[in-house]
Deep mutational scan, measured.
Amino acid sequence: TTYKLILNGKTLKGETTTEAVDAETAERVFKEYAKKNGVDGEWTYDDATKTFTVTE
């Protein structure tokens, strides 16, 4: 399944996708990605669109 991440950081904005077996796995991948890019904020997930959003 393809999951999407929307980054709404103070200095970094953008989108990325990952293939994962479930939302929990995708969330771990995306949180590591955000951490590596210095983005830390509020996380939300929309199951209907398989989209995570992190907003600083």
Rank of each mutant, 00 (worst) to 15 (best):
1 T>S: 10
2 T>Q: 13
2 T>C: 04
2 T>S: 12
2 T>K: 09
3 Y>H: 03
3 Y>P: 00
4 K>T: 13
4 K>Q: 07
4 K>V: 12
5 L>A: 02
5 L>C: 04
5 L>T: 01
5 L>E: 00
7 L>P: 02
7 L>C: 04
8 N>L: 11
8 N>M: 12
8 N>P: 02
8 N>G: 04
8 N>F: 06
9 G>L: 13
9 G>C: 04
9 G>S: 14
9 G>M: 10
10 K>C: 06
10 K>M: 08
11 T>P: 06
11 T>Q: 11
11 T>K: 15
11 T>G: 13
11 T>Y: 15
12 L>G: 08
12 L>R: 02
12 L>N: 11
13 K>L: 11
13 K>Y: 08
14 G>R: 05
15 E>W: 12
15 E>T: 11
15 E>F: 05
16 T>Q: 14
16 T>I: 11
17 T>G: 06
17 T>E: 10
18 T>Q: 08
18 T>W: 06
18 T>G: 03
19 E>H: 12
19 E>A: 10
19 E>D: 11
19 E>V: 08
19 E>L: 06
20 A>Y: 03
20 A>R: 03
20 A>G: 05
21 V>C: 04
21 V>I: 09
21 V>E: 12
23 A>S: 10
23 A>T: 03
23 A>K: 15
23 A>C: 05
23 A>E: 12
24 E>C: 06
24 E>Q: 09
24 E>G: 09
25 T>P: 02
26 A>V: 03
26 A>T: 01
26 A>G: 02
27 E>A: 08
28 R>G: 09
28 R>W: 13
29 V>G: 04
29 V>F: 12
29 V>H: 14
30 F>K: 00
31 K>A: 07
31 K>L: 14
31 K>Q: 14
31 K>N: 07
31 K>C: 04
31 K>M: 09
32 E>D: 06
32 E>P: 02
32 E>A: 13
32 E>T: 08
34 A>N: 03
34 A>Y: 03
34 A>F: 03
34 A>R: 01
34 A>C: 04
34 A>V: 15
35 K>T: 15
35 K>D: 11
35 K>I: 10
36 K>D: 14
36 K>S: 11
36 K>Q: 15
36 K>N: 12
37 N>K: 09
38 G>A: 08
38 G>R: 08
38 G>E: 13
38 G>P: 01
38 G>N: 15
38 G>K: 14
39 V>Q: 04
39 V>W: 09
39 V>I: 14
39 V>K: 02
39 V>Y: 05
40 D>I: 10
40 D>M: 07
40 D>N: 13
41 G>V: 02
41 G>S: 02
41 G>D: 02
42 E>L: 10
42 E>A: 10
42 E>K: 10
43 W>V: 02
43 W>K: 00
44 T>C: 03
44 T>N: 07
45 Y>M: 02
45 Y>H: 02
46 D>V: 06
46 D>G: 02
46 D>C: 05
46 D>F: 04
47 D>Y: 10
47 D>F: 15
48 A>M: 10
48 A>V: 11
49 T>F: 06
50 K>I: 02
51 T>Y: 03
51 T>W: 02
51 T>F: 03
52 F>D: 00
53 T>N: 06
53 T>K: 09
53 T>Q: 08
54 V>I: 07
55 T>R: 07
55 T>K: 07
55 T>L: 10
56 E>S: 04
56 E>Y: 08
56 E>P: 03
